[in-house]
Design a protein around this nucleic acid. Sequence first.
DNA 1: TATTGTTATACTCTATAACTATA
DNA 2: TATAGTTATAGAGTATAACAATA
Lengths: 178, 178
Amino acid sequence: MKKCMREGTADQRVAYYWGRVREQGQKKKDFDWPSTEVILNLAYTYDVLMLHWSKLLSRYRLSLSTMNILTILKYSQGEGHEQQELCQLLLVSRANITKLIDSLVKRGLVVRTASLLDRRVWIVKLTSAGDELFADFNPFLLKEAKRITSRLTGKEKKLLNGLFLKLRAGAAREGSLK
Amino acid sequence: MKKCMREGTADQRVAYYWGRVREQGQKKKDFDWPSTEVILNLAYTYDVLMLHWSKLLSRYRLSLSTMNILTILKYSQGEGHEQQELCQLLLVSRANITKLIDSLVKRGLVVRTASLLDRRVWIVKLTSAGDELFADFNPFLLKEAKRITSRLTGKEKKLLNGLFLKLRAGAAREGSLK
DNA sequence: TATTGTTATACTCTATAACTATA
DNA sequence: TATAGTTATAGAGTATAACAATA
């Protein structure tokens, strides 16, 4: 991976490619550069940040998904969550959440406990080992979040968060191509 | 997947969880909610948009990565690219770009041609079949980019693009945790 | 009948390291 | 020695459908 990235030049390279997209798009129907740029930027920024993030998490043998599960469970304050709720929060299918939870159970980080209200349901909870692991990685992530966003002012962060919301609203809107 | 998402409520659910993150984070050292929110928003917005995007691409039996490769090659206007350049543009390792290109070669969408300058190098180019497929999917993606960003004004799109750049600059900065 | 979760399967993507051949 | 690309391998993630138990 490292070998493929010459330090400090990735953004320039991408800019060069994007320039071509922009030029050659002009001729096309429905082309709107700022719109396209937003999508390219979202995907590329995600890749850059999450590549970095994944590397941090690999120290704890966690992926983004498993880290998210532990975090969600931690913030439930001992109540836990149904697997189905985790599906909704993580945008992961039922079949795949089963596998993710399986892997965490195997490592002793979470447990499945039966629901008293609905016998079809498992409530997933953090174990003390899971809690410890969370206490271990979470401070790093908070620090990193602060560092990564350090070039933005408070006002810009708020602005950015509002724009993200609008983007998602656009994606969810009716009339999408089926 | 669909079964796990009750229409129109995903954002509220996530907001509920984020509320807990925010509350319980307050006590912690290095916690800064707007910074954390930016990261959560980036990841979640990416997931929402790309889930949708992937569904569109699956009609063409393409993933985000393979779509990107075809697009990059298309915009090289017949010149093609070294695999190594694709690594840099896509943030994918050399080993893995080999596999991705293999799969496209197998489908007849791209070809590897020897470089005349360096005998270690393959130049990857779009075939006419690849070109046709691009002509097929690209208009949909342009339309979708426009639709997804339709809730943003032109000014907001520009703003957003600038903020993405700052985010990436922050991630790349020296002094990151090693 | 609908929902929660599991199982099975196949595919894609990623990470790592050892390897070949060129430069 | 360094670089471009390949091979091998193992693990993670995703998509789909069929299934059991329960509501």
